[in-house]
């Protein structure tokens, strides 16, 4: 089991964000997490990654209780792909990827040739090794996101968490990044990503988890989970779910726009 969450809950002071969260994410599974703003998706991710302590219940990754691991040991089990953002300083793409390879290094050490090779292999696996010597801040947003995917690969962990990886990308780049992620899951990685587009789940997820009002409202195959009723309820708008190409894919349409016109 890649990620196993049992009776997990979290509160900021008196404000309860998550309660009674239970979920099992199998190995090599691509899971899509849906939920309205403020439902607790990011908090759940922060707890799994060990960025937020003080949760109740247990979270284990690859069979290991995250609470008992050091920061370094955690990084070997799970890596994190943030939304692409501009760092303060201009690093080369190669250096950005290299940063994740050093979790076997002592505090006073710098990466060597084997780390460089690992970083380069990660870039090559994503198909962007020609960007290696470009400046990270000067490549496009889509390329930056792919570099961060490569960085997570270079970390050599079996599980990856992505927080809204495509929210700042245009349509083409969204498709490119998500196909790349899907391919990685096919190659055996477990990937959990949050998104605001229910449609994406039908194309790019093995399972969909819906977080609503601080708990798991539904978890299963996208076609079972993303229904007219559920999407309408969690986002508070009237939605119709329709199928295309003999139900090989489905789409969500907000009804208010269609009916009035």
């Amino acid at each position: 089991m890649s990620i196993s969450i049992q009776n997990m809950g979290f509160s900021y002071g008196k404000h309860e964000v998550l309660h009674n969260v239970n979920a099992e994410i199998p190995d090599g599974c691509l899971v899509n997490v849906l939920g309205p703003n403020g439902a607790g998706k990011s908090t759940l991710f922060r707890c799994i990654l060990g960025l937020q302590n003080g949760y109740s219940g247990t979270i284990s990754v690859n069979g290991k209780d995250m609470r008992k691991l050091s920061v370094k040991e955690r990084a070997r089990e799970i890596s994190y792909i943030p939304q692409s953002h501009s760092p303060v300083y201009d690093y080369e793409v190669m250096d950005v990827v290299l940063m994740a390879t050093g979790n076997d290094l002592g505090m006073l050490r710098t990466p060597g040739r084997s780390h460089m090779l690992r970083a380069y292999e990660a870039l090559e696996r994503i198909g962007i090794s020609d960007l290696a010597h470009r400046t990270y801040t000067q490549i496009s947003g889509g390329e930056q996101q792919l570099v961060l995917v490569a960085r997570a690969l270079a970390q050599n962990s079996k599980t990856i968490i992505m927080d809204e990886p495509t929210s700042a990308l245009d349509y083409g780049n969204t498709v490119r990044v998500l196909s790349c992620v899907k391919q990685l899951a096919r190659e055996g990685l477990s990937i959990v990503q949050s998104t605001h587009q229910p449609d994406q789940a039908f194309l790019y997820a093995d399972k969909t988890m819906v977080i609503y009002e601080g708990s798991v409202a539904a978890y299963g195959s996208p076609k079972d989970v993303i229904t007219k009723e559920l999407v309408s309820k969690i986002y508070g708008i009237d939605v119709e779910v329709n199928s295309l190409y003999d139900d090989r894919v489905r789409v969500c349409v907000p009804m208010s726009e269609v009916v009035h016109s």
Binding site: L51, V71, K72, R74, I78, Y80, M99, Q155
Partner: peptide, 8 residues
């Protein structure tokens, strides 16, 4: 946050 998830 990123540094922590990279094992620092």
């Amino acid at each position: 946050e990123e540094a922590t998830t990279m094992g620092i």
